[in-house]
Design a protein around this nucleic acid. Sequence first.
DNA 1: ATGGTGGTCCAACCA
Length: 263
Amino acid sequence: MPLRLATWNVNSIRARIGHLKRFLDEARPDVICCQETKVNNDAFPYAALREIGYRHILAVGQKAYHGVAIASRLPFEEEGARVWCKKDDKRHAFVRLNGVELHNFYVPAGGDVPDPETNDKFAHKLRFLKEMASWCRRERVKERPIVLVGDLNVAPLDCDVWNHKRLVRSVGHTPVESAHMARLLKAGGFLDAARHFAQPPAPLYTWWGYRFLQAFAKDYGWRLDHVWVTPSLVSSLARVEVVKTTRTWERPSDHVPVLLELG
DNA sequence: ATGGTGGTCCAACCA
């Protein structure tokens, strides 16, 4: 039975609930993983999602910042969340469904200056990626059927940003971040599923910033949102699609959804 | 070289 999964940094699930419902109606994933929900669990829009068939919901939220959620048409066989870097800032949730473990991450953005000595946010980001890698080794992630998705806030390849040369010193695309991500991929034995279908040097982006108004029109994008699978799931990979159209909707999230289909 | 916008929640932080 095919399984359709989506990941989307919605940049506030309450501000984006209309877009989220529209996307779910059009793309019809079985499961959606959201990041930056920016809402406490007691104010989470459970009813709006249950009304359209996503009856199983795991919200891991807090007020104003961060927050992740998983909403599903299929029941969860297990669910949970983990604290990373000893900061309980709601950046991870996981469920098991159809025998597949699904991990939803929101990696710290890292601030403006790519120097861990002077910028605590950048140091936190690197620590977070390192801790993810040691978790992969400790939990023997590569031996299990796992899908890891989310806003990982790193565009690791030259063709993951609109201008590599110009952005190579910018947070999100520095060599040190790309190296951390490469080690994480290796530690979990993950395949970067989006790049399985859109091989370099094909450009592929999931985020176009708000600050420059023409960013989307000029395709000044970054690939910050990722869908990875462990080796036992590689043979069932059917499709990955970046759904750019949501970025054209009124008052959009700066990120767009990524769809993953396992056949 | 700089600043630009958007969300949360009403000042200032984060992205």
